[in-house]
């Protein structure tokens, strides 16, 4: 049985863990290719036109996998406790995909309010893949440990960058946007070409970020946004500017980013991406933003 993994949304949170988990269990898998124009076109074809760009891309990835594998893995992440909820797309996408595509899907459900922890979820996933519970829990923990080193290393490097002498910019956005080939990649490439140190808002220790995030607004109850806001609280003093990267029309970001704008005192730029964006307009905006920062740093 081949498992298909769409490269979108959840992949950027759990991708490494899944791949390791499947490796340990010796289950073959394929990951859909990097986002390209073909995938976006596919996504636009299947999605409702008002869906957010990340969701369209995700549906495109699923569509590109249909027929190439036996089952497609789409998790369902409801909440990590009452004050740690996620976007409604995260809990609906499995059912949406099931209604759009004619393929077999496997899923697991993370819902801490109902006692469905991550461990339980992976047990369920293993069961659907035909592995007994004990083995899958053991593989889950093994996978966790083996990806932990890489993760910590990334985080350390990210924190080290804060002391860099170059112009520092904090890139705030959901990882599925930042690391996406279509949305975030051009921006990262452009910034690096201009010799700017990019600090990624999602590469920090989660527990610490959660506390810091509630410092900005105590009742913020979106888990992933809370982490991003935490990084802003932590880094605002040390960076020169902040870039917000949002997919149009992200529901949570529309509120939370606006809140951050009210909180911030450093210069920031809000980049809203949709599927028609041309890279030229983007580069002009980024260039002028960098110019402003350079002036500000010189004074």
């Amino acid at each position: 049985m081949t498992v298909g993994i769409p490269r979108g949304l959840f992949y950027y949170y759990y991708g490494e863990l899944w791949l390791k988990f499947l490796d340990i269990l010796h289950i073959p898998y394929i990951v859909s290719e990097e986002t390209n124009q073909y995938i976006i076109d596919l996504g636009r074809h299947y999605a409702t036109d008002e869906m957010c760009l990340s969701m369209k891309i995700y549906l495109g990835h699923i569509a590109s996998l249909v027929g190439k594998c036996d089952v497609i893995l789409i998790p369902r992440i409801d909440n990590f406790g009452r004050m740690n909820q996620t976007c409604t797309n995260f809990l609906a996408v499995y059912d949406i995909a099931q209604n759009i595509f004619d393929a077999k899907f496997i899923t697991y459900d993370i819902d801490y309010l109902k006692g469905q922890t991550e461990e339980e979820a992976f047990k369920k996933l293993g069961k659907e893949l035909g592995v007994d519970g004990e083995t899958s829990i053991r593989s889950y923990h093994n996978a966790l440990i083996s990806i932990d080193y890489q993760k910590q290393k990334k985080i350390c490097l990210n924190i080290e960058k804060l002391e860099s002498k170059r112009l520092k910019i904090l890139l705030v956005g959901h990882p599925y946007n930042i690391y996406d080939n279509f949305i975030g990649k051009p921006i990262i490439v452009f910034l690096e070409k201009n010799g700017i140190e990019i600090i990624y808002a999602d590469l920090f220790h989660e527990n610490m970020m959660e506390e810091l995030g509630s410092k900005m607004q105590e009742n913020l109850y979106f888990k992933y946004s809370k982490n991003l806001m935490g990084s802003i609280v932590l880094c605002e003093e040390k960076v020169d500017g902040i870039i917000f990267l949002t997919a149009f029309p992200c529901g949570i970001d529309s509120l939370v980013n606006e809140l951050a704008f009210h909180y911030l005192k450093k210069p920031y730029i809000d980049l809203v991406m949709d599927e028609l964006d041309s890279s030229v307009g983007l580069e002009t905006r980024l260039e002028s933003f960098i110019d402003i920062l350079k002036r500000g740093a010189a004074y």
Binding site: T48, E50, M51, T88, A92, D95, N99, P249, G251, S254
Partner: peptide, 16 residues
């Protein structure tokens, strides 16, 4: 209302 995420998500299901 436009941009209502849950309702946008449910539209393909309703169509089916």
């Amino acid at each position: 209302s436009s941009f209502c995420t849950p309702e946008i998500g449910v539209m393909p299901i309703l169509r089916r």
